[in-house]
Amino acid sequence: MRSWSYTLLTAFLLGLTAPVFADDKAPEYDARLSGYSYPFDVQTFEFDSQRQSLEMAYMHLPAEKGQSTVLLLHGKNFAADYWEETANYLHEKGYGVLMPDQIGFGKSSKPAHYQFSFEALA
């Protein structure tokens, strides 16, 4: 039989590891991650690809006059917000930074039928 101190310790430890939210509800995320904040303003680029109308979400930090813009592409299972630290560093150096969410990831469209080849993503 477990002692009351074991039960109390278990309840305390569970309380330490439980997520805490202001309204006691976990945030809800839809397919476009509308409830998830990105570190910079998000814009969208509308285009047609593979006979579908799609939207690619992206963040852009403008370059200082005369400086180049760096394109940062995330890998699979990531999103553009992955680049926050790198983007801040480059922008502090005067570079422009463009960080798109590839189709199927982050805040971009997630089509059910899409060829995710390197050519299509480019």
Rank of each mutant, 00 (worst) to 15 (best):
A57Y: 01
D24A: 11
Y6Q: 14
S49R: 11
G94M: 04
G96K: 03
A63G: 03
A120D: 12
W4L: 15
F21T: 09
D30P: 06
M1S: 13
L71I: 00
Y82L: 15
Q115L: 14
P111L: 02
K107M: 05
A120G: 08
F12G: 08
Y114R: 05
L33D: 02
D23A: 12
E92Q: 06
I103V: 03
M56S: 05
F118A: 14
N88A: 11
Y36P: 07
T69R: 05
D24V: 11
D23I: 10
E55N: 14
A18R: 14
Y95C: 00
V97D: 01
S53V: 10
F105I: 03
Y6F: 15
W83D: 04
M1Q: 11
L9Q: 07
A18N: 12
A122F: 12
G96M: 04
N77V: 15
L72A: 10
A87Q: 04
E46P: 08
Y89D: 00
E55F: 12
S53K: 14
Y89F: 03
T86F: 00
A87I: 00
Y6R: 13
F78R: 11
A11V: 06
L98F: 02
Q67T: 09
L73T: 05
W4D: 14
A18T: 13
L72W: 08
G15Y: 07
V97N: 02
K25M: 13
S34A: 04
D48P: 06
F21M: 07
D41E: 14
T69H: 05
Q115E: 13
V97P: 04
Y6C: 13
M56K: 04
S34H: 07
I103T: 06
Y29E: 11
P27A: 12
R2W: 10
S109I: 15
Q52C: 07
E84T: 01
S3D: 10
G104S: 04
N88D: 11
V97M: 02
V97C: 08
S34Q: 09
A57M: 03
P111E: 03
R2G: 09
G75N: 05
Q50P: 02
G104Q: 01
Q52M: 08
F118R: 13
H74L: 00
A22I: 10
L61C: 08
L33S: 01
L13C: 07
K65S: 09
A120I: 09
I103H: 07
S49T: 05
K76H: 11
G96H: 04
F40P: 02
Y38A: 13
L61P: 03
K25G: 12
F105D: 01
Q50K: 01
L54I: 02
